[in-house]
């Protein structure tokens, strides 16, 4: 047990400041434990968003010493014993109060994405037939806990504030999870280019680096989607073949015995 120093942002979107706190930290504690301890003992009205405290719900995203993290999965022993720990809200979204931000923009983005529709012919009386090797890639994207850390570090959203032009990495992989679903028959490539701003991403991989679920957002999600856009809109051979043979349907996986 040792007394440690903290600075936590208190205030709203317009006015606020870093407030100093000191509290006892025990073995095994994570940053969220400390924040909740400060809330209970020193600042009852400190606004904090959290739920599962197990890295599964993605509610407690904040910036710790400037680095975007889930506070429930950040152990105190990562920091030096004399280090002051600074906790600030996600920079990309407007502050509601203290370290809680308004992430509602993300919910509007999700609504823009066309929902899943599975090929009816793949349905059997035992359900749909899909093989593990064909769903593994989609399952990687579906691990997303919507902590929005990737949205927070994406420089298009964070530094350039182009929220009206790019849906951000979270929703790129949401599109990827649908486009790469072995049985989905909906086409989302045109809006990916025209509305969702797939061309905006210049693959700096910041999103992948902060993902607490280790989803390879850039290489497995965004880049393959960009390739699909290029195939569709810029590759003369596929454009010609589509004109002759009509729009290519998604290939269904073979039905194995």
């Amino acid at each position: 047990m040792a007394t440690r120093k903290f600075q936590i942002y208190k205030g709203d979107h317009k006015n606020g400041e870093l407030v100093n706190f000191e509290t006892e930290v025990n073995e095994g504690m994570v940053v969220l434990d400390v924040v909740l301890k400060i809330q209970a003992e020193l600042a009852n009205d400190l606004a904090v968003r959290w739920n599962c405290k197990a890295g599964k719900c993605g509610s407690c995203s904040v910036e710790i010493n400037g680095k975007p993290k889930l506070s429930c999965m950040t152990r105190m022993n990562q920091y030096g014993p004399d280090e002051t720990i600074t906790i600030t809200p996600l920079k990309t979204f407007p502050v509601i109060k203290d370290i809680v931000t308004d992430v509602s923009w993300n919910y509007t983005q999700n609504k823009r994405i066309k929902p899943v529709k599975l090929a009816p012919e793949a349905k059997t009386d035992k359900g749909y037939v899909m093989y593990q090797e064909d769903v593994g890639r989609v399952q990687e994207f579906r691990k997303c806990i919507e902590c929005y850390l990737c949205q927070n570090v994406c420089h298009i959203l964070r530094d350039h504030d182009k929220k009206d032009e790019f849906i951000g990495p979270r929703f790129m992989i949401r599109v990827a999870s649908l486009e790469m679903h072995p049985l989905d028959i909906v086409d989302r490539i045109p809006e990916l280019k025209k509305e969702f701003g797939s061309g905006m991403c210049n693959v700096t991989r910041c999103c992948t680096e902060v993902c607490p679920e280790d989803i390879n957002i850039t290489d497995n999600g965004i880049i393959p989607l960009k390739e699909r856009v290029i195939d569709r809109f810029y590759d003369p051979v596929t454009i010609l073949s589509r004109k002759i043979f009509g729009k290519r349907k998604k290939k269904l996986p073979p039905i194995k015995p």
């Binding site: 035992k126 359900g127 037939v129 899909m130 093989y131 593990q132 769903v135 989609v138 399952q139 579906r142 679903h181 996986p253 039905i255 194995k256 015995p257």
Partner: peptide, 9 residues
Amino acid sequence: VFDRTKNGL
């Protein structure tokens, strides 16, 4: 997207 059996179920 559930985990699958060998038969794809």
